[in-house]
Amino acid sequence: MRPFSYARPASLGETFDLLDSAGPGEIRPLVGGTDLIVGLQSGRIRPDVVVDLKHLADLPAGIEQVDGRLRISAPTSLTDIIGDARIRTWFPALAEAASTVGSVQIRNRASLTGNICNASPAFDTGPALLVHDAVVLLSSRDGDRRVPVADFVLGPRRTDLRAGEIATAVELPVPETPLRASFARLTRRRGVDLATLSLCCVVGPRRTRFAFGAVAPRPFVVDDDSGVLADPSSSPEDRDEVLRAMTAQASPITDVRGGADYRQAMLLVLGRRALAAARSRPVQSQPDGAR
């Protein structure tokens, strides 16, 4: 591990000062550290400064509802996200996906923004964030900008994060009509594993949307606008044909986690299962205890 200094700013202003004083690649934000520490230890990431975002007075951990959106601030842990009734009701696939990340210990530390900013092709919340139209709120001294997660993650370990910027929150539009969504994932073992592939499915009144993870340089969305997948009376053969066309857009690679052909085949198998799960899901529009 290369030596680095550790900064713990108390406000966003101090954070921006630090960011502005460093050159590109020299400074790295830290939340849970569950990716960053691994990267530091292997030498893949070699910053001069690590800046901890968990102690900013004006960016506390938390989830709030603003203007029809649910805003999850950067330091919020996955455990807190999974436990939030609004998330579980409106974004069940995200709750499901987040609860597969690592282990209880990892989720107690890890953040959603960290999962996104790390930009692994296999990041587990990716497909759920995509089907739910999540947006990353990026902040710098010059102000804020909002970028959909689908555009923010550019490829393996690459994001649209600019110099001087950090991600301060993830925002999810609260759906007008309730969503029937599900998450599916393939791993090499049942406990604590990175995904061989993951996917999300949302079945609307007509449109069915899938997002796939770990089968392309970044998670991506495919829509079925034909209505076949959402149609309760469609035949399994017809649904399969549509699913096949959708999963054919993946470009999986062969690595230690699985062969490309296996991943491709499993996309269809898990796609079918996720579709069935989403279709059979009862719709609930209001979270328990929330208005």
Partner: peptide, 24 residues
Amino acid sequence: LIFDEHGRIVNLGALDYRIPTTKD
């Protein structure tokens, strides 16, 4: 243990060398 053509262990470490967990 999986080796590449240079004789390096590809799954070198806990990330990609899998042992059973309590869930397995």
